[in-house]
Design a protein around this nucleic acid. Sequence first.
DNA 1: AGAAAACCAAGTATAAACACCTGATTTTTA
DNA 2: TAAAAATCAGGTGTTTATACTTGGTTTTCT
Lengths: 226, 226
Amino acid sequence: MKKINIAIADDEELFRKGMRFLLERETNFNITYEAENGKKLIGFISTTKEVPDIILMDLKMPEMNGIEATKFIHKAHPNIKIIALTSYGGKSFITNMIDVGASSYLLKNTSPKIVIRTINKVHEKGFYYDEKVLKIIHENIISSSGKRIKNDLDKKLLSKREIEVLELICEQFTTLEIADKLCISSRTVEGHRINLLLKTQSKNVAGLVIYGIQKKLIEITPDFNI
Amino acid sequence: MKKINIAIADDEELFRKGMRFLLERETNFNITYEAENGKKLIGFISTTKEVPDIILMDLKMPEMNGIEATKFIHKAHPNIKIIALTSYGGKSFITNMIDVGASSYLLKNTSPKIVIRTINKVHEKGFYYDEKVLKIIHENIISSSGKRIKNDLDKKLLSKREIEVLELICEQFTTLEIADKLCISSRTVEGHRINLLLKTQSKNVAGLVIYGIQKKLIEITPDFNI
DNA sequence: AGAAAACCAAGTATAAACACCTGATTTTTA
DNA sequence: TAAAAATCAGGTGTTTATACTTGGTTTTCT
């Protein structure tokens, strides 16, 4: 069986070594190169006779980031399949990486099993998406969605009313306005607000908004600039 | 084991009967209704006590087509999962259906096995895409995200100092703390803050944080709880 | 060189947020 | 059914944010 040649681009050496260790346990994987940034990777690919089949590409790297490197490599070598492997899971990160030529997108907090499966699938079929990323893509297609995704964690951590209040805080309403909207006393709203600060471990509204966005209680449409 | 209740909407009786036959061989499937167009389906769902878990929805139907029906049903009953099942595989058909609330999309020239798997997966996880459709979606991302407007407007709109202040506001620091960090008077920070509110057209910090996240001035790491 | 913008800083005042307290009623859960 | 949690609401006080004002210095651009 022909081995799959893999290159890893990531600025953290520890991560690269860890990945190498994990992947080399697969008998059909062959790690041919490690790069600490996009520039070095391109340098390698431009000079070597044996270009890799697959590249695991981090997004945030010094000198040249993953997006630029992917764009360049995909143009120069369309047969090299690039898998984004990063901790950033924003919609626009994903779509941008795919846009510039990535064949898949993986989050770093995933299991080795999924990485291995993704590499094999990408090598076989040319693209593959794990469920986590697929869900983000799925949600991304839904443009008109007024409804938001509240996961079960929120329901356990925050009460229904607290979520309502949090949503309105994120929409820039003041305590008085929120009290008016929900037909309750401003005192009650303040109580909810304090509970929210405690439960989300925030210092002030800024923290609440960030929490709301992280938990997708409110929707934002980010612009992409790495 | 609780059965999955399924409704089929398709104008061809032969197709409906065939599907019913295929699906009823699965012990956990229960076909509760057949509709020959969207209107009849909505009529059924509006009156019945037992709404289906899953709807197999054709696109082209007389009276009311699949897109309109999906839009209506998804709004009225968000818990009902709708699977588009049609012979049209155009990009816009797929994205439109997902946009109005479909949880999956299947092409009619697929195998019964895949239909059954899709129904089960959608019932379990809320969405699922077969490889054929996934490939179309994958290609769609590449073409659609090409036209993205990069705005260096931010750099013109906000000054360097204002961006610094905005970043710190987003990190939940108070005016005094920011003044301390930047070694300037708190009055100056307030001035910047006011300018930020004006320039970003925000009501309060909540708006500033949202702006900061949108413009990627600050990074957030979203949660992925499937 | 002159104008425009950015940057700094201050006064005064009000509105809002934050903190810490108390307790009653309803709903949920074990 | 008893305990726990959620919801509501009030008191008191401090801190922070917002609003409107003015004006001087530096940087940037034309």
